[in-house]
C-alpha cells in the first residue's frame, strides 16, 4: 500500500469515529469516494462487502428466482381484477409497515394452490394461494395473512434462512468478484451463479416449509402492529389462525398461534370493522 493510501485510510478511520459510519469499510469507502482515490474506495467496498448483508438489489434478484421457482410449482392466477385487489390490500399494509419500499416495490399475487398458504420472497414478492382466499371470510382476514408475510419480509426472515456456510461462501465470492468488471471472465460468472444457486435453494426451502416457531410468532406480533396501523381489525389474525387448524399448508401450530395473538391483543385499542371492505371482498371471492 502506498504511503498516501495509508494516510487516507487513517483519515477515513478517523472519520468513522467522527462521522458515525457503521463500519470501517464504509468509512474507507466514503474516504475513497471523496478523495478520488478509487483504490481506496474499492478497498473500502471490499471490506464492507466482507461484513455486510446483501444489498437491496441483490435481495431483489434472489427473490425473483425464488418467486420463479414457486411459480414453476403453482401457477399464477392472473385475473386483472383479482391482482389489482390483492395489490390494494398489500400496498396498504406495506405502507403501514417499517419497510414501505423495496428495491423495485412490492408485488402481490394469487397462486392457484388449494392449500391455505402464503409466501414472502425477498425483494418484495408476496404470494397467497387461492386456497387461503377460500378460507378467509373477510378482507381483514386476508389482510391478516398478508400482514404476516410482510412481517417476515420486514424481519428479513427469508434472507436469514440462508445456511451460514452459504452466507460465508456468498460473502467471500462477493468480495472476490465484487471488484471485478462485469464482463471480465465467464468462469467467474459461472462460479458466482453456483453460489447464487445455493442461496436460492436455502430461501426456497424456508419460504415453502415455514420458519421456526419463534420466527412465526415474531411475524404474528409484528403483523398485529401493521394491521392496526393500516386500519384493519387485528382480531382477524386470531380468527383466521383459529380456523386454520384443520387445513394443510399453514405453518406452525395455528391454535397455539391464535391463542398468543389473542393474548397480545387483549390490551390493544383496535380499529373498527368496516362493512364496505366486506362487500368488496365478497365480490372478489365470488370470482375465485
Amino acid at each position: 500500500m502506498k504511503t498516501s493510501s495509508r494516510f487516507l485510510l487513517s483519515l477515513a478511520s478517523l472519520s468513522l469515529l467522527a462521522g458515525g459510519c457503521a463500519t470501517l469499510g464504509q468509512a474507507v469507502k466514503v474516504g475513497g469516494q471523496l478523495s478520488g482515490y478509487h483504490e481506496l474506495e474499492d478497498m473500502g467496498g471490499s471490506m464492507e462487502k466482507a461484513s455486510r448483508d446483501f444489498t437491496e438489489e441483490e435481495k431483489y434478484y434472489i427473490g425473483r428466482t425464488v418467486a420463479a421457482t414457486l411459480l414453476a410449482d403453482t401457477p399464477w392466477k392472473s385475473a386483472a381484477r383479482l391482482t389489482t385487489y390483492v395489490n390494494g390490500v398489500g400496498s396498504t399494509l406495506a405502507l403501514a409497515s417499517s419497510r414501505p419500499e423495496m428495491y423495485r416495490g412490492y408485488h402481490f399475487a394469487v397462486l392457484t394452490g388449494k392449500d391455505g398458504n402464503a409466501f414472502a420472497c425477498p425483494g418484495g414478492f408476496i404470494f397467497v394461494s387461492a386456497g387461503l382466499l377460500d378460507i378467509c371470510r373477510s378482507e381483514d382476514e386476508l389482510a391478516a395473512a398478508m400482514a404476516h408475510e410482510i412481517a417476515h419480509m420486514v424481519l428479513e426472515h427469508p434472507v436469514q434462512a440462508i445456511q451460514a456456510s452459504h452466507q460465508r461462501e456468498a460473502a467471500a465470492s462477493l468480495v472476490k468478484f465484487g471488484l471485478r468488471k462485469a464482463g471480465e471472465s465467464q468462469g467467474e460468472l459461472q462460479q458466482l451463479t453456483g453460489v447464487f444457486d445455493n442461496v436460492v435453494k436455502d430461501v426456497v426451502k424456508a419460504v415453502a416449509q415455514g420458519y421456526s416457531r419463534d420466527k412465526e410468532q415474531e411475524a404474528d406480533l409484528l403483523a398485529l402492529d401493521i394491521l392496526i396501523q393500516a386500519g384493519y381489525h387485528p382480531q382477524a389474525l386470531a380468527d383466521l389462525l383459529g380456523r386454520m387448524a384443520g387445513h394443510s399448508g399453514y405453518h406452525g401450530d395455528p391454535k397455539d398461534r391464535a391463542r398468543k395473538v389473542s393474548e397480545a391483543l387483549a390490551s390493544r385499542n383496535t380499529p373498527a370493522l368496516w362493512s364496505e371492505r366486506e362487500k368488496r371482498f365478497k365480490q372478489i371471492s365470488g370470482h375465485i
Binding site: 420463479a68 421457482t69 414453476a72 467467474e188
Partner: peptide, 21 residues
C-alpha cells in the same frame, strides 16, 4: 460495473434452468 447477484447472474441462471417461468 462489477459483478454481484445481478441481472447478469440471473441471466446465467436462467440459461441453466430453462424450465423456470
Amino acid at each position: 460495473a462489477t459483478k454481484g447477484f445481478s441481472a447478469q447472474v440471473e441471466s446465467e441462471y436462467r440459461q441453466k434452468n430453462p424450465d423456470l417461468p
